[in-house]
């Protein structure tokens, strides 16, 4: 099957008269890690937020596994969105709760409300699955530690496990390593690369570090002022392309 898991076409969005996205097209296939690069304000995060449904695009189509989200009935839209999970720069876990409880929260959409008022009531099957998700990110031994006691890299690992527990096959990461030290950043990127390849997930990660993208991503997408600057396999990405993103004035002058 060659249908891309995530397909974005002609995405446009403006905030208060300023056009942030002017037609963004890209695809993410299952089993690949795609890095989204771009300077501040180029529209990387807005793109992810539109795909997640946190922001409403003005135009364009978003399809998950070939199914266009626009015009879907509410119920089916929820099911389709359920297949996409988001990883945040600020991690957004509950520090006072254990890693296991935080991972279980990824499954809330499948748990009846009456059983989700406290982690004590979470179904055993969900807790079992959450433990397996922690295992997959290599943190099963920290399951009963409070998240606040874990290192930044481990916390982001727990957040990835939460996305797995949501049973998402499209994972969108918004600057997942910007708040981490270089070593932890390396580990988290290796984890995302691993998950994409081992478990056939489609992973798109907004990154501010081109070197991390070159080392871990299969493909790199460059955004410049809300338009696509390039979409290349990492092996073919060179300094010239990066310069168009981060020093457009210099490229124009040259």
């Amino acid at each position: 099957m060659d249908t891309p898991l995530l397909s974005v076409r002609g995405l446009a969005k403006s905030f208060g008269g300023r056009q942030v996205l002017k037609g963004v097209d890209f695809e993410v296939r299952s089993g690949e890690l795609v890095a989204v690069l771009g300077a501040n304000g180029s529209g990387k995060s807005t793109t992810l937020r539109c795909v997640m449904g946190i922001a409403q695009p003005d135009a364009g189509t978003i399809a998950i596994d070939g199914q266009e989200l626009d015009g879907l009935p509410w119920r089916q839209l929820q099911q389709a969105r359920q297949r996409t999970a988001m990883i945040f720069q600020k991690i957004h876990l509950v520090p006072r709760r254990t890693a296991l409880d935080n991972v279980c929260a990824g499954a809330l959409a499948r748990i009846p409300t009456s059983q989700s008022l406290s982690p004590l009531f979470f179904p055993r099957s969900v807790q079992q699955e959450a433990l397996e998700c922690l295992e997959r990110v290599g943190l099963a031994d920290r399951a009963f530690d409070r998240v606040g006691r874990l290192s930044g890299g481990q916390q982001q690992g727990v957040a990835v496990a939460r996305a797995l527990c949501q049973r998402a096959d499209v994972v969108l990461a918004d600057e997942p390593v910007s708040a981490l030290d270089p070593h932890a950043a390396e580990q988290v990127m290796a984890l995302l690369h691993d998950l994409a390849h081992r478990e056939n997930l489609a992973v798109a990660a907004v990154l501010h570090q081109p070197d991390l993208a070159l080392r871990h991503a299969d493909r790199c997408i460059g955004l410049l002022n809300g338009t696509m600057a390039f979409d290349l396999p990492s092996s073919r990405l060179g300094q010239a392309e990066l310069d168009t993103l981060y020093a457009p004035d210099r490229v124009v002058a040259a």
Binding site: M52, I54, Q78, K90, H92, L93, R97, A105, A109, Q166
Partner: peptide, 23 residues
């Protein structure tokens, strides 16, 4: 943030409250 994270994961309002905001 944690509340938004659970919202994007498909949790309903009461679940967000019980598992992010209140803790």
């Amino acid at each position: 943030g944690p509340q938004e994270a659970l919202r994007t994961a498909g949790a309903n309002r009461i679940q967000q409250l019980a598992n992010a905001t209140l803790p």
